[in-house]
Design a protein around this nucleic acid. Structure first.
Lengths: 141, 141
DNA sequence: GAAAGTATATAAGCATGTTATATAGTTGAC
DNA sequence: GTCAACTATATAACATGCTTATATACTTTC
């Protein structure tokens, strides 16, 4: 089926793009740390176990990660008033700044590369962005 | 400048896509291992130091990584006949299989997600693939 | 109000990286 | 031709960021 071949090509393209970005913009913070901060920013305070599930790492792994973020002042633990066993984690102002800086650094590196493309390629990429956004947000629970 | 805003949006989209893929298709092998195997497959036998430079890790780090690959039978050291100090690393048949399997697993997971999009979004993504390929291959030395 | 369940923390260990340095081979000046 | 300086890889010691197994503290249910 031609459609399936085309989807394979898109999948290959995305896969190659992911590898390429990793090479272009090596980040200082670990990827779990960055995505956890990102989740905290967009989804508000969450439990340790909820964060662990979202990031696909173990609960002790997330506890350690949050310890690091807390030591760096980028997140803080606050009590869950509805359940004394649980702890909610909230991103701090410092954390938001760190996230914004990292994001800007990577986007800026990408912009340089994108600017080197010809007009049609740039247009094709711009036209694909809404599809990318819907792809990403489809399975948000 | 409107063009710069649009490039920023593309960069943001790609950045979000990279995070999304990492969540969708958590890989068993480490990312350096995968990209090193990928480099060995596409660029042929290379020196340890050349591989280290391409993957942006230290030379001892690459030595260790190659030790792991060699122990797993996925790569092998061969002498560099032009320089007795150097070692060339070559991907094995097993390595090619591992790489193909990993690639297929990720692409297949992506295809499932892509198949859930509507027609126009799929077309937009398919249309963007050539641009992605040129973006990635622009700075190949 | 105790037994069972759940949320987080701690402990021990493994994988994968780092810097500093050692070893082996190469090259160029004399 | 040989020796000093350079280069490629390996080894050593350590850091980070995960893992599984288990302990602790709290909650729920009967």
């Amino acid at each position: 089926m031609a459609r399936d071949r085309e989807l394979t090509r898109v999948a290959d393209g995305i896969e190659a793009l992911v590898m390429w970005v990793r090479r272009q913009a090596p980040s200082q913070v670990s990827s779990s740390t960055a995505t956890t901060l990102d989740t905290l920013q967009s989804a508000g305070p969450l439990r340790i176990s909820e964060l662990a599930a979202r990031e696909s790492i173990s609960q002790p792994g997330m506890t350690t990660l949050i310890n690091r973020l807390e030591a760096a002042g980028q997140a803080e633990r606050i009590p869950d008033t509805t359940d004394g066993r649980a702890t909610l984690v909230r991103i701090t102002t410092v954390g938001r700044t760190v996230l914004a800086d990292r994001h800007e650094a990577r986007a800026s590196a990408l912009r340089v590369e994108l600017a080197g493309l010809n007009h049609d390629d740039r247009e094709a990429l711009i036209a694909a962005v809404p599809a990318i956004e819907r792809l990403i947000n489809r399975n948000r629970n």
